[in-house]
Amino acid sequence: METFIQQVLAGIATGGIYACMALAVVMIYQAIHHLNFAQGEMAMFSTFIAWQLLQWGIPYWLAFGLTIVISLIGGYVLERSVFKPIHNAPVLSHIVIFIALFAIFNSLAGFIWDFTIKPFPSPFGNAPLFGGGLIGGHQAGMIIITLVVLLILFAFFRYTRVGLAMRAAAANPESAKLVGIRVGVMTGLGWGMASAVGAVAGILIAPVVFLEPNMMLSILLYGFAGAVLGGLSSPGGAVLGGFTVGVVENLAGTYIPVVGAELKLPIALFLIVAVLVFKPTGLFGQRVVQRV
């Protein structure tokens, strides 16, 4: 029983990472109805920008804020410049562009900052807090910031006009144009916000996994899994989904004999796929009711 609780706690700690990323995934999914495969690399790139700012001696929280702003603008510009010309192309062409962006960001980061592993500071320190040292200061801080971001997003979409316009543009682009919403701008804004949330995720994750161009590879996948588990439509569901993935991964590694430890990742993924087979809207996905 004690191991069980230990493993659940450890799962929650890593789950915090996935929850962050899942949140970013849901942000973009809401705006464009695709999973953006380049999102992890974009977050990694943002994290490198933060690292560079820190290297230049800018204080942590200022660098944090600056990185978010830069990522927001960067995401917006990226959408408006790369995706606008092909917004009528088929889905698969979009996926290929994501793959291209993946290659570009990865290669650029390696070129500018090289491929050596860099430590990244945490503002929360690493002192063990509770759970037998499994949840340290940074883990706790990460979880809190994730929840704060979630709260901000919730308020933004619920209570601001721009948030409402973004939801409308995503839900029904044609009708959105008919009420005067500039749908393209909203899509760009969605990209900007997703990339800003991704930047937060990257900065929080980097102290745990260390900074290098490939740091986001498997994390993005867990983020996808968390987001899908959460139903892809609700930011809250994504965060819960992220934690669930972390816990499932840890428990699979501990309790499944022989192959458990070696196949932690595939087992976690397959469990999630299995969940989807039986509940295709995800665990926390909301059903949109429609009468015709």
């Binding site: 006009r161 939801r167 409308a168 839900a171 029904n172 044609e174 009708s175 008919l178 009420v179 919403i181």
Partner: peptide
């Protein structure tokens, strides 16, 4: 529009608010 163009996933009040978006 034809088919009424309802934002089905949003609330009635939000739909109305959207009308005044400009």
């Amino acid at each position: 529009p034809e088919g009424r163009g309802t934002f089905t996933s949003l609330t009635v009040e939000e739909n109305l608010r959207l009308g005044a978006m400009t």
